[in-house]
Computed example of a mutant assay.
Amino acid sequence: MKKLAWIAITAIMLLIISACGNADSTSGTEDPKGEAAASDQEEVSNQDAAEDEDADEETSEKSSEGEDIPKVEKDENGNYILTTVGQTIDEPDTGTIELMKIKDVNETVDISPIKVTVKDIKLFQITDVQETMIDYLSMYGLENTAPEKLNYIQIAYKSENTEDKDIDWYGIQNVVLSNGEQLDAMMNDFISDDHDMDTIYYGNVKKDGTVGLLYKGNPEEVESVKIIFGESMDAESYETLTEKQQVEYEL
């Protein structure tokens, strides 16, 4: 029974996140349907890679001022579309899920020959956490056995092998929050997707990916997010083609 419940929870999380790239302009200052811009990226090092950007606070300010929050809609496939801070959904095996922050990114990261487009970053909070959800997340770094609420970050992206040769790429390896938390995306990502099934990118293939990671702090404390992408490697020789890359976004 627990196994079936865990499958149901994973399906719920995928329903919530599957429409991440379909948010309209009311959820941010950038249009995710337009052509993606290049990210300000650099190879991973011990130096601070922070870059000042304009924070996207419009939706958060509106909801905090008591303005109407639009009803959560579903797309033609029955997927939830949470696009505005303050929107909530209730799930019997999970709890009440609320969108706390959102950043529409729509920027590309070059990990040649892998091209990654970061769609958006969302911070969620789960209250009235159900026991089934606690059991499921205990496999992904949850330490508190009876939490009143859970916070997690969700990063949606799409990736493409732009060459004919086979490439091995492990996706997002770490996420660093401005509150000082470093999250292990290799071990604690609780959302399964196409990328998790197979890290090999055969010639000219595309995949959608979503990372979901629990964190301990409050959403208000997270003002920026640094994403560490793994290196791309030749799938046959395991030669490194492009080193690890990092980008940082203000929320």
Rank of each mutant, 00 (worst) to 15 (best):
V44A: 03
K33S: 15
Q41P: 00
T59M: 07
G28S: 06
A38T: 12
T29E: 06
Q41T: 04
A55S: 11
E58F: 13
A38S: 12
S39Q: 02
E53L: 02
D24L: 07
T59H: 04
G21Y: 08
A37H: 06
T59A: 15
N46Q: 13
D24I: 08
G21D: 14
E43Q: 06
A38Q: 13
T26A: 10
E53G: 04
A37T: 06
D31M: 04
A38V: 10
S25K: 14
Q47V: 11
Q47I: 11
A49Q: 08
D52Y: 06
E53Y: 00
A23G: 14
A37K: 15
T29W: 00
A36R: 01
D31W: 09
E58A: 14
E42M: 10
E53A: 03
T59C: 05
G21M: 07
A55N: 05
Q47M: 10
D40W: 03
D31L: 03
D56W: 02
T29V: 05
S45L: 04
N22I: 05
D31R: 03
S39T: 02
V44K: 06
E42F: 06
S25I: 15
A50V: 06
A49F: 10
D31T: 03
A55E: 09
V44N: 00
Q41N: 03
A38W: 06
D56M: 05
E57I: 12
N22M: 09
V44T: 05
E57H: 02
E30P: 01
S27R: 01
T59S: 15
D56E: 11
S45M: 03
D31A: 04
E30Q: 10
V44P: 00
N46A: 13
T26Q: 12
T59P: 00
D24S: 11
Q47F: 09
Q47S: 11
E43I: 01
S27Q: 02
S27D: 00
A38L: 14
C20V: 06
D31E: 10
E51P: 00
A55V: 07
T29R: 04
A55G: 05
A49S: 13
E58D: 15
D54T: 13
A37M: 09
E58C: 04
